[in-house]
Design a binder for these strands. Structure first.
Lengths: 345, 345
DNA sequence: ATTTGCATTGAAAACGATTACATAACCACT
DNA sequence: AGTGGTTATGTAATCGTTTTCAATGCAAAT
C-alpha cells in the first residue's frame, strides 16, 4: 500500500517533470492523429466530440506549442521588427508602445532594435530581420538609409515612421513637418519676436523638413532666419546653444526640432543664466510629459504619437493584404500647444 | 548576340528573385555537404580550403540562415523576454535600453512585453515566453505575481528587476529602497521639514519598501508620517494630491515613490497654485531628464538604471551556466541628488 | 443500386536547419 | 606491415509543427 502510493506519486512527478509535451503526446493522449490536434489548435474542421477530447488532452498534458516549429513549417513568423534610433527618445517610446499594443492585438510579436542613428547598425538589423523572416518592419531611418531603401530586395514590407524616403519607395506615416514648423514661427512672430533661430537634427529628413518650414514662414514675412544643424542629442544641443548664446546679435526666439534638442536648449539656458521668455523665447517639438512643468511651460508642437504607431501598424497589415499596390504616405498634423515660454514680449 | 544578352540578364534576374537560398543550395554551389556548410557557419572544424569555398558560395547565393529552423533543431532560441509594466515609464525605458544593448552584444534577441501592472497580462506573457522557448526572462512583477512565481515550473530562469519576490525564489536586482527613502527623509529633516507625507505605488513591493524606509527614518526621530498608497500613475497621483492639499494640517514635505507619481504631484501643485518649496517641499525617486528643469529643480534619488539593466542581463547569463546554484539578490544603492525643491525653510 | 459530393480523419511529406554517427584519410607508433 | 588515434567530411536522423493527399463514411441524387 505504502509502496504503491509512493510509486504513484513518483509517476505523477515523472509526468510533471517530463520535457514539455509535444503535439504527438497530445495526439496519443486523446487517441487521435497529430493532424487532428493541429486542426483543433488552429480552429480547423473537426467534429465537436474530438475537439473536446483534444482540448482535454491539451489540458492534461500541459501542452505548449513550439513557436519555432510552427513558424518553420507555416512560414509565418507573426513577428514584426521595430527599428528606431533610441527607445529613450520619448517620441519613440510612445510610438513603440502603440505599435506593440496594436501588434499583440493581432497576435504578433515585436522585436525592438536601437540603431543610434548609425546606418551600419540599421543595415545590420535589417539583415537580422531577414533572418528572422519577419512579417514586416516599421523603421525610422536615417537620411542615408532612407535614400537607398529597397523593400522588394529585403523580402518584407517596410513602413517608415517619422522620416520618409524617396516617394514611392515605401509606405510612410509622418508629421506635416513644414506646416508644423510654420505654425511655430507664425506664433512667435505674432508674439512679437523677430530674430528667430533654430537647432535641427542633421541625421534625418525630419530636421531638414522642419527647417524648410521655418524658412518658408520667415520668407513670407521677409525676415531672415538662422538655422543650424547638429546631432539630435541633448548634449550636442546644449553645447551648440551655449556657444550660440555667447555670439553677438543672438536670436530673440529659438526653435528646437525635437524633444531631445529642446531639453538640451533648456539646460544651456539654465547654465547660462538666461531667462525664458524674457531674454529669449523657446519653442519646439514633442509634447513630452515634462514640457508643461519646465520653467514657464514650453510652447511645443504635439505629435499624435500613439496614432502614429497604430497607423504604421495598420498600414503594415494592409500592405500584407495587397503587396502590389503603390506606396502610400500618410501625413498627420501636429497641434500647437501654447505655453509660457513664448509669452508675448 | 542581343538575344543572348537578354537571356543572360534574364537568368541573373531569375537567380536574384528566386526564393531565398537554403543551406542545401549553398552546399550544392560549393560542392560540399550541408553538414560542412553548417560547420562553417558555426565555426566548426573545417579545412581552410573548404571554408573559403563555402563562404564564397554563401556570398554568391545570398544565403540568409532561417532562424526558426536553427532554433527548432538546436533548441537554443537566443531570445530573452523583458516584461515590464509600461515601457513609457522612463525607469523601464532606460533599463530596457541597457538590457537590449547587453543582449545584442551576446547575440540575443529581446521580446518586450507591457503588462500595465495587470497580473493576468503577466501570466499571459509568461506563457507566451514558454511557447517561444526563451532562454530566460527579465521581469518586473506586480506584487501578486511576485508571490507565486515558480521559475522551475516555467522552464526558464527568471531575473526580477525593481521588485523582488520571496527570498530564494528567483534572482533579483533591486535598489536598496528602504535606505534610499531614509536618505530622502533625513535630508528633508535636515532642511527643517517636520510634517512629512508620501504617495506610494500600491501594485508592487517597491512602494511598500520605500514606505517602510520612510517610516523607519521618521520613527528614529520620533516623528509621525502620513503614507498613502495609490495606483502608480501621474493621473492617480495628481488626483490624490489635489484632495490631500485641501485637507487641513497638510504635510510640509512630500515623498513620491517613483517618477510617474512625482510628475503627477507637480501637476497637482501647479493646478492648486502651490509654490515649491515655499508652500511645500517635494522629493522623489528617479532622476529623469526633466527633474532638473521642473520648477526649482527636484530633489530625487537617482537609480543606476543602466547598471540595473546590465546587471540583470549578466545574472541571467550566469544563471544559464549554473542552473543549480541558489538564488541571488543584488542590491544597488541610490544616489541622493539635491535640488531646489527641498531648499531649507 | 450506383454514383456523386461533402465533411472528417489519418499517414506521411514537407519546412530548413543541426548533430549523431559512420567513414575515410592520414600520421605516428610499435 | 599493422594498429590506434586524430581529423575532416558526408549521410541520415531529428527538432515539432503544418499541410498535402488519400481514404473513409455517409447523405443526397441519379
Amino acid at each position: 500500500m505504502g509502496l504503491s502510493l509512493v510509486q504513484h506519486l513518483g509517476n505523477i512527478n515523472e509526468n510533471d517533470c517530463k520535457m514539455t509535451a509535444r503535439i504527438k503526446d497530445v495526439a496519443l493522449a486523446a487517441g487521435v492523429s497529430v493532424a487532428t490536434v493541429s486542426r483543433v489548435l488552429s480552429n480547423g474542421p473537426v467534429s465537436e466530440e474530438l475537439r473536446r477530447k483534444v482540448l482535454a488532452a491539451v489540458e492534461a498534458t500541459g501542452y505548449l506549442p513550439n513557436l519555432s516549429a510552427r513558424r518553420l513549417r507555416s512560414r509565418h513568423s507573426h513577428t514584426i521588427g521595430l527599428i528606431v534610433s533610441d527607445i529613450r527618445n520619448p517620441f519613440f517610446t510612445a510610438v513603440s508602445r502603440a505599435v506593440e499594443d496594436a501588434a499583440y492585438e493581432v497576435g504578433m510579436r515585436v522585436i525592438l532594435c536601437n540603431t543610434d542613428e548609425n546606418p551600419d547598425k540599421e543595415a545590420l538589423y535589417l539583415r537580422l530581420m531577414q533572418e528572422e523572416r519577419v512579417t514586416g518592419v516599421i523603421l525610422a531611418p536615417t537620411g542615408a538609409t532612407a535614400q537607398q531603401l529597397d523593400p522588394v530586395a529585403l523580402g518584407f514590407p517596410v513602413v517608415l515612421i517619422d522620416r520618409a524616403a524617396l516617394p514611392g519607395q515605401a509606405d510612410a506615416v509622418v508629421l506635416d513637418n513644414a506646416d508644423a514648423a510654420s505654425m511655430l514661427v507664425e506664433h512667435l512672430l505674432q508674439q512679437g519676436y523677430r530674430r528667430i533661430g533654430g537647432l535641427f537634427g542633421k541625421t534625418s529628413t525630419t530636421g531638414a523638413e522642419r527647417c524648410a518650414g521655418m524658412e518658408a514662414a520667415l520668407r513670407k514675412h521677409d525676415l531672415p532666419g538662422d538655422a543650424r544643424f547638429i546631432l539630435p542629442t541633448p548634449e550636442a544641443a546644449e553645447l551648440a546653444l551655449l556657444s550660440w548664446l555667447a555670439e553677438e546679435n543672438r536670436p530673440d526666439a529659438l526653435l528646437a526640432s525635437n524633444g531631445l534638442i529642446l531639453l538640451g536648449m533648456l539646460r544651456a539656458a539654465r547654465r547660462a543664466g538666461i531667462r525664458i521668455p524674457e531674454d529669449i523665447a523657446i519653442a519646439g517639438f514633442d509634447n513630452d510629459n515634462w514640457t508643461e512643468l519646465a520653467g514657464p511651460g514650453l510652447t511645443v508642437i504635439e505629435q499624435p504619437v500613439y496614432d502614429i504607431g497604430r497607423t504604421a501598424m495598420r498600414m503594415l497589415l494592409e500592405r500584407l493584404d495587397d503587396t502590389g499596390r503603390s506606396a502610400r504616405k500618410v501625413v498627420l498634423s501636429g497641434r500647437l500647444v501654447v505655453r509660457g515660454s513664448t509669452a508675448s514680449r
